[in-house]
């Protein structure tokens, strides 16, 4: 992988993301002028000469659009980093938090927090319940794949399906037992979306996702060594099981924070790192930043699509990413089948 190409990919993504974010901040039921948005941002952040938009637009931008677009980027980036981590830890290029039941576990934890009324009353209860759910799912998955000797793609995916189904069953049971007025909220949230998310959501999600992501990036070499296989990793002096558990815990933290903030957004963790791997290379320190940017771009655009496609109804964000991700997954699966 030439360093020059890697740099081009990274720079390209780093340029595309802010442009997409600006576009996403401009578009919606009340369109804002693209350069007006840029001007207002420059003015508001004190980075340069610019002027605020007229009052209602200015409010829409700063209260509604901006936190939403930023959250889309952070959540998308976080999910992509989780996907890249799971792919290395399970040594499986098609691993993804959604497919492996980590997302379903996070959703179960979050729904439980809503059902028990913690989410409203306790600060950070939702993200931490989602983290606990994600972590439980990841541990169950890991234990099962160890017990079944689970090396192959099929075994891992099938184990993930059963973990997913279990978590979804738990979620359904909780939903049935949830008061009717809460059910719709929970369902909307499960479908994935960024409606009504503000600066507070962004702040919590950013701390957890960026913090977890930065830690994973710092430990990228561990991911690399682990990806060589258990035996070679152990021969290089890595405490394999401990390292795996720490990495999985970090991945669950990020996945939990992302799910708590935006609901289930499937396939981002699969598509972004999988598509970037041939371009950015396999090393964690190259792949993680590129995957983060690609995942951010993907979710910003998907969220934009939810608002642009239909003026009347906001489409669920999770459906949009699934419409893109599911065919991609099938193609990638086919490719990996024909390669062997």
């Amino acid at each position: 992988m030439s360093a020059a190409r890697r740099r081009r990919v990274l720079v390209g993504l780093a340029l595309a993301l802010p442009v997409a974010m600006l576009g996403a901040a401009s578009a919606g039921s009340v369109p804002l002028p693209f350069f007006g948005v840029l001007g207002s941002l420059l003015h508001g952040t004190g980075l340069g000469a610019g002027a605020p938009l007229p009052p209602p637009s200015e409010t829409i931008l700063w209260v509604v659009r901006l936190p939403r677009v930023l959250l889309a980027a952070v959540v998308g980036g976080g999910l992509a980093v989780v996907g890249a981590t799971l792919q290395s830890v399970f040594r499986n290029p098609l691993a993804d938090s959604g497919l492996l039941g980590v997302g379903a576990g996070a959703a179960l934890g979050a729904v439980a927090a809503v059902r028990l009324g913690w989410a409203g009353s306790t600060f950070l209860a939702l993200p931490f319940a989602a983290f606990a759910g994600a972590m439980t799912a990841v541990l169950v998955l890991y234990a099962l794949s160890q017990a079944l000797g689970g090396g192959t793609l099929h075994e891992l995916l099938l184990t993930g399906i059963s973990v997913s189904a279990l978590a979804a069953a738990g979620t359904s049971m909780l939903l049935v037992a949830t008061e009717e007025f809460r059910v719709k909220t929970v369902l909307f949230w499960l479908a994935g979306g960024l409606d009504g998310r503000g600066w507070m959501h962004l702040r919590i999600a950013s701390i957890l996702i960026l913090g977890g992501g930065a830690t994973l990036l710092a430990a990228a070499r561990v991911l690399d060594v682990l990806s060589l296989g258990d035996e070679e990793a152990a021969a290089l002096g890595l405490p394999v099981h401990f390292a795996r558990l720490v990495l999985l815990a970090l991945a669950a933290l990020v996945a939990g924070a992302a799910t708590a903030a935006a609901g289930s957004i499937p396939f981002v963790g699969l598509v972004a790192p999988h598509a970037l791997r041939p371009l950015a290379g396999a090393l964690g320190r190259h792949l993680l930043p590129a995957a983060f940017l690609a995942g951010a771009l993907l979710v910003v655009l998907a969220d934009l699509a939810t608002r642009v496609i239909s003026q009347n109804v906001d489409l669920p964000l999770g459906s949009v990413t699934a419409f893109v991700g599911a065919p991609y997954f099938l193609l990638a699966l086919r490719q990996s089948e024909t390669r062997r």
């Binding site: 990806s227 021969a235 290089l236 791997r277």
Partner: peptide
Amino acid sequence: ARAIALVAPDEAAPATLTVAERTRLGRY
């Protein structure tokens, strides 16, 4: 790990990892 190196047939290393990158991990 600094004193003993084991070279065994590998089956697991990721497909897109380059030879140089794999070799460098020997410095871990």
